[in-house]
Design a protein around this nucleic acid. Structure first.
Lengths: 251, 251
DNA sequence: CATATTCGTTGATGCGCATCAAGCACGCTT
DNA sequence: AAGCGTGCTTGATGCGCATCAACGAATATG
């Protein structure tokens, strides 16, 4: 409801923004030259803190900026009239939020912080202007959008053709991969989202998610304790997902 | 397997390309000024015919161009190792294909013509160059990508939370809408895809699709005869989809 | 025009997951 | 430390859809 106001940042802070950010290679500036990055830095006017469970933006909000996650993590979801939610994605540091708003000039989903987080605010009109001058920025921005499309196709395949246990395995492998890229352990991590949110994302009910966790544990592939997950047998998890030989119910 | 070679087009033809194309408002040039469109036209080097069931591009192909559908229609799919396919989208005149390739510089799915079709080939590097000069093109291109993302989110919601009959209703309404925009009847049309392809797209088996068709017909909402569909009760169809009050199995 | 092949419909059966329900393990508040 | 709310687990039951199977309709092939 109440939005935290953007936190003004000093010029010195801003200058440090991208080139010294350890997320450089995961974020928008990836692949840009140093001088290109310097120009992008100047465009990032402010950062914004978002407290846990608070929205960065909401469905229907006018679209004005995209956001690069500096710290923390977000979920994006759509609320249905009956109050139920459908989670469309989980997002972590370095990823870009808000791309959904460009087409309609309004945001089409809610972006909610899953923990106290901080984002870089990139005013969209300015980004377009700069992208016309800085080829590397333009190209990288297009890549970010394209990858989002491909990612969504992956989720569609998951929802369309995998069984509960396989969906969860795919989800865990995806998390594991993204965490390891960011320098965290790929084998052991803490889930920031509830079973309900995982279920919503995977097209399952929370009880089914819980059972799938237990099942993977019984099979010795993972170790779960509430939100703590430890991956014991990566290869088997991957085999479970990748062949995609099995579809839908058994067989 | 064998790809039809690009069909060279005379300069005169090209000149007529966009500004005289009746798809103008559905395609990339939408929202651009006349002079902007003229510059875009010059960039479209060739058209390409694709015969029914032939690929426009294949998964793994190096990414070089995006394609605007002039006539005909396409499906995009991913083939799994066991030979089964997962359809990620159906595409008709005016829509843009190939955006998935930007991120990895390779196509990540197959685009197969569902009937003899023709596309405008838009070489991607040239498009980027021109987008840096022509603001309207840049903006429109971003919008097209953003809408693709939003569209995919819609499919994710459909796959994650709707029952077979609702999925099919949503699918039919979506087709109907897109056809009416293109000047075709929104109430009566011919399906270009098989039950199997519809099922693959909707995360259902072909038998279930067939039953859902029959069910909607029994309820008096539509009239089906093989690939011919007539919508009898639009409002009820929409009610079936929109509330999204019911989820997954019954309740 | 006859035959083969693909595609569609419909019925019978079983499995996977949603649903309903109860109890347990947390973190929060006072 | 007690009390509460929220989130997680696990069991019992039923429904929706996949699966298997057979037949019919439409299109392609020679």
């Amino acid at each position: 409801m109440l939005r935290p106001k953007p936190v003004p940042v000093t010029v010195a802070d801003i200058r440090k923004n991208c080139s010294q950010c350890h997320l450089l290679e995961l974020c928008l500036p990836f692949g840009m030259t140093e001088t290109e990055i310097n120009r992008l830095e100047q465009l990032i006017e402010s950062r914004r803190r978002v407290l846990r469970n608070k929205p960065l933006y909401r469905c229907g909000d006018p679209f004005e900026a995209i956001y690069a996650i500096r710290t923390g993590s977000f979920k994006t979801d759509v609320l249905l009239e009956d109050g139920r939610q459908q989670v469309t994605g989980f997002h972590m540091a370095g990823e870009i939020l808000g791309l959904d708003g460009i087409g309609t000039e309004r945001h089409t989903c809610n972006a909610i912080a899953m923990e106290d987080s901080e984002v870089c605010v990139i005013e969209y009109r300015q980004l377009e202007t700069l992208a016309r001058e800085v080829e590397g920025l333009q190209h990288q921005f297009h890549k970010v959008m394209s990858r989002e499309i491909v990612r969504d196709h992956g989720v569609m395949m998951l929802l369309g053709s995998m069984r509960a246990e396989e969906r969860l395995a795919a989800f865990l492998l995806n998390l594991s991969h993204r965490l390891s890229i960011r320098g965290f352990s790929s084998a052991e991590f803490h889930l920031r989202m509830t079973r309900n949110e995982i279920g919503s994302y995977l097209g399952l009910k929370l009880e089914t998610v819980s059972r799938a966790f237990s099942r993977l544990q019984e099979e010795g592939l993972i170790l779960v304790q509430q939100k703590h997950v430890k991956i014991l047998d990566l290869a088997s998890l991957q085999k479970l997902v990748h062949p995609l030989t099995r579809h839908q119910s058994g067989e």
